[in-house]
């Protein structure tokens, strides 16, 4: 295998709430190669954000990472080494070094991560000063440079503005600038354009692509929009109820999806430019409550190809098809997952 920047192995993050345990992420594995973009798609509540937060250990109680490995290749003293991020404590100096410096994150609603009481300049300079030992003055110069990089006009004036004085698109650009301040190897983008308008979304997507090339960073791109995935990602994982159901390159995902959920998802969106009068394909029912995840394949109650006695028994194993394509479905293999509850496979 080629060397990977990030390898997630069997990650499990659960929330121990008063009403029960939410297995928000339950055995997720995927790899990201340096400089590449991995897209994560899935419907609301399938665990996309929690996966992203888990990488940086930004999970707060009642949530806890209960298992798995997050192997990250970092350069330390000029030598490459692979470390398991989960070995570091959530408040340790190491993880703090990694956050922002080597792995940065941007969020859906930029307002929640920008402090309304400080100017853009203050916040950007602060982000730079945390990781780099420079003077305040050169931090501000660097901030101006970054704002130029994210194509915000009149960067100098912008430094003195407060977040609420900016439009949604501008705020997201500031967030990106902040994320780039540490020149990260990996950028986790959690639905960065969902709150934006179409034309602004287009601009931000273009910007992110060109910055990715310029900085040579890898991206973990989380979204529920298959159009955005098609544009941004090279590899894609499809999640459903805390699990990866299919994992493949983006071409195959759209040309030859295998999992019934992926197929149904692709067919249920109206394809712009191809108007037809018939009804859309739908997925019946709704996503079950996270407290009540069905036994066996979590998708089986909604699946059009449900096989009684098979799909509702045990979780199907991740089955490799050709190349890097894997799928978790009994249509492709009878293999069940080696069960962690001690049930026979």
């Amino acid at each position: 295998m080629t060397n990977m920047l990030l390898q997630i192995k069997d990650l499990r993050t659960h929330f121990f709430t008063e009403s029960g345990v939410v297995r928000a992420v339950d055995g997720v594995s995927f790899d990201i190669a340096p400089g590449k973009t991995l897209g994560v798609v899935g419907e609301s509540g399938c665990g996309k954000s929690v996966t992203g937060y888990s990488i940086l250990q930004l999970i707060n109680p009642p949530g806890r990472i209960v298992g798995g490995q997050i192997l990250f290749e970092r350069e330390k003293n000029g030598r490459k080494e692979v470390v398991d991020l989960l070995k570091y404590g959530a408040r340790s100096e190491d993880i703090r070094q990694i956050r922002g410096n080597e792995i940065a994150m941007i969020f859906q609603e930029p307002m929640t991560s920008l402090d309304p009481l400080f100017t853009v300049g203050d916040q950007l300079a602060e982000a730079i000063l945390v990781h780099q030992k420079v003077s305040k003055r050169s931090a501000l110069d660097r901030a101006t440079e970054l704002l130029d990089k994210v194509r915000l006009p009149q960067a100098r004036e912008l430094l003195n503005k407060y977040p609420h004085q900016l439009s949604g698109g501008m705020r997201q650009r500031v967030m990106i600038a902040m994320a780039l301040s540490g020149q990260p190897k990996l950028l986790i983008a959690d639905e960065p354009t969902t709150a934006l308008d179409v034309t602004t979304e287009g601009q931000i997507l273009d910007l992110m692509q060109s910055l990715q090339e310029e900085f040579g960073m890898a991206m973990l791109f989380i979204t529920h929009d298959l159009g955005v995935i098609a544009e941004m990602a090279e590899e894609v994982v499809v999640m459903y109820l805390g699990r990866v159901v299919e994992k493949t390159d983006v071409r195959t995902l759209f040309d030859a999806p295998k999992h019934p959920y992926t197929r149904a998802l692709l067919e249920s969106i109206p394809k712009v430019g191809h108007k037809h009068d018939g009804p859309l394909q739908t997925i019946e029912g709704m996503v079950p409550s996270p407290f009540n995840i069905p036994q066996g394949c979590p998708f089986h109650p909604r699946c059009a190809r449900f096989m009684p006695g098979i799909c509702d028994e045990a979780v199907p194993a991740e089955t490799p098809l050709e190349r890097s394509h894997t799928v978790r479905c009994y249509l492709y293999s009878e293999q069940a997952e080696g069960d962690r509850y001690g049930n026979p496979a």
Binding site: G285, P288, P301, A304, R305, F306, I310, L331, Y332
Partner: peptide
Amino acid sequence: MEILRKTGNQTGARIARK
């Protein structure tokens, strides 16, 4: 290997019960 087995689509009924 693909398991080819036709199943009646009772999805709706199953969901309703749930």
